[in-house]
């Protein structure tokens, strides 16, 4: 269910809520990224994340959270910290749309009308 940010209340307002005790070693567990492959031959797509202590649990959690409506034939789970991501600064050299490299695009090549290329 959603929430309008304007109609929220919190525990502090109830008065006298002390801090939460933290047991040593307590955490919400490491983060894993989940990739889901739908039926029909499409590639795996990032679906979101889950928390888990190991790969087996991550896989189970991913299935329960992201695939319980039967929308997946395959799941990948990856610890978030091992993913290497580009930064926006990388975007220039890596992701330059290559307007100066038209030979990478099929429209560049002229083919006689009526000839099937493939």
């Amino acid at each position: 269910m959603g929430a309008s940010s304007a109609s929220v209340s919190g525990a502090a307002a109830t008065g006298g809520q002390s801090g939460v005790e933290h047991a040593p070693g307590d955490s919400q567990w490491p983060l894993w990224e989940v990739f889901v492959q739908p039926p029909g031959g499409a590639p795996h797509e990032h679906a979101g994340s889950v928390h888990a202590v190991d790969a087996e649990a991550a896989l189970q959690n991913a299935r329960d959270v992201y695939a319980r409506r039967g929308e997946a034939v395959s799941l990948w789970v990856v610890p978030s910290q091992v993913i290497t991501a580009s930064t926006p600064e990388d975007m220039g050299p890596f992701f330059d749309p290559g307007n100066d490299k038209p030979y990478r695009h099929p429209q560049f090549y002229k083919v006689p009308r009526g000839v099937r290329v493939y």
Binding site: Q28, W29, V50, H51, A52, Q60, N61, D64, V65, R68
Partner: peptide, 11 residues
């Protein structure tokens, strides 16, 4: 104990 388990046990 944790959100993932709310979902797993409900399943």
């Amino acid at each position: 104990p944790i959100l993932e388990e709310d979902i797993a046990l409900a399943n």
